[in-house]
Computed example of a mutant assay.
Amino acid sequence: MGVFTYESEVITSIPPAKMFKAFFLDGDKFIPKVVPQAIKSVEIIEGSGGPGTIKKVTFGEGSQLNYVKHKVEALDEENFVYSYSVIEGDALMNRLEKITYDVKLEASPDGGSICKSTSKYYTLGDIEINEEEIKAGKEKASGLFKAAEAYLLANPDAY
């Protein structure tokens, strides 16, 4: 098994507490509402939302993927940290055991936030990962974050 690590940052004008609440704490309802074409639904299969919770994410009609299952690994509301693993579904492409994501929101000097993300791809056997596929996935995730930002800017009383 190989492990491939990728880091990224997304900057938003939304303060960390507001973005964390919308995107991570209420994300199961918020994200399908903001981008229904990308994420059709999120349902809790097991647990209550905290660490150990299993969620099924069903993708929208135009997506290349059907679904994934996430396992919440860590949820730290005070420090704006959310960690989860993709443990089942199309995103694993029969080449990955799992993908882990560690996300932290930090305050930026302008009152917004910086979303720092580290993802680790655990391959089955000695399979190599195509960086272009990883980059495409990162761009989609960044697009979700920017859609959330646009919604929150257009609806300042939300969250």
Rank of each mutant, 00 (worst) to 15 (best):
Y151C: 13
V42T: 14
F20W: 12
E78R: 04
D26Q: 14
R95P: 00
D126W: 00
G89T: 08
Y151I: 12
D90P: 07
E149K: 11
S85T: 06
V42G: 03
I39Y: 03
L144H: 09
F4Q: 09
P51M: 09
F80R: 00
D157L: 07
L25S: 09
V72K: 12
Y67E: 11
D28Y: 01
I39N: 07
E131K: 15
I31F: 01
K140Y: 04
V10Q: 10
E77S: 03
L124G: 07
N79H: 14
A107Q: 12
Y122A: 03
A150N: 10
E77W: 02
K146I: 13
V57E: 05
I14V: 15
Y121M: 08
E128K: 11
P36T: 10
E73N: 13
I44K: 15
V34D: 06
V86T: 13
F59Q: 07
L65P: 02
A22K: 10
A107E: 14
I44A: 13
F4E: 09
A141L: 05
E7N: 13
V10D: 14
K55N: 06
I127L: 11
V72Y: 12
V68Y: 12
K98I: 02
L25N: 06
E43V: 05
G112K: 03
E131W: 09
Y151L: 10
N79P: 07
V10M: 04
N155Q: 03
D28T: 03
S113H: 01
M93L: 14
N155R: 05
A158Y: 10
V10G: 01
P16W: 12
E128A: 14
G62H: 06
V42F: 03
Y101I: 02
G125R: 01
I129L: 15
T12G: 02
P51R: 08
K40S: 12
E9L: 04
D157M: 04
K18N: 12
F24Y: 13
K104S: 07
I54L: 15
L153K: 15
A141I: 00
H70C: 02
K21M: 08
G60Y: 03
G49P: 10
D26G: 08
A154I: 11
S117N: 11
N94Q: 14
A38L: 08
E131S: 13
P51Y: 07
E128G: 10
Y6Q: 04
S41W: 07
G62E: 06
A38G: 03
N79V: 02
E132D: 15
V86H: 12
A74Y: 06
F80W: 03
G137Y: 13
G49Q: 10
K40V: 01
G89D: 11
P109G: 08
G89R: 11
S41E: 13
V86I: 15
D26K: 10
G111A: 10
I127S: 08
L124P: 07
N155M: 08
K33V: 05
E149I: 13
E61G: 02
Y122G: 03
K29H: 07
S108M: 01
K21V: 03
A136T: 08
Q64N: 10
S85M: 09
S119P: 02
K56V: 05
I11D: 04
V42E: 08
S113F: 00
E77P: 02
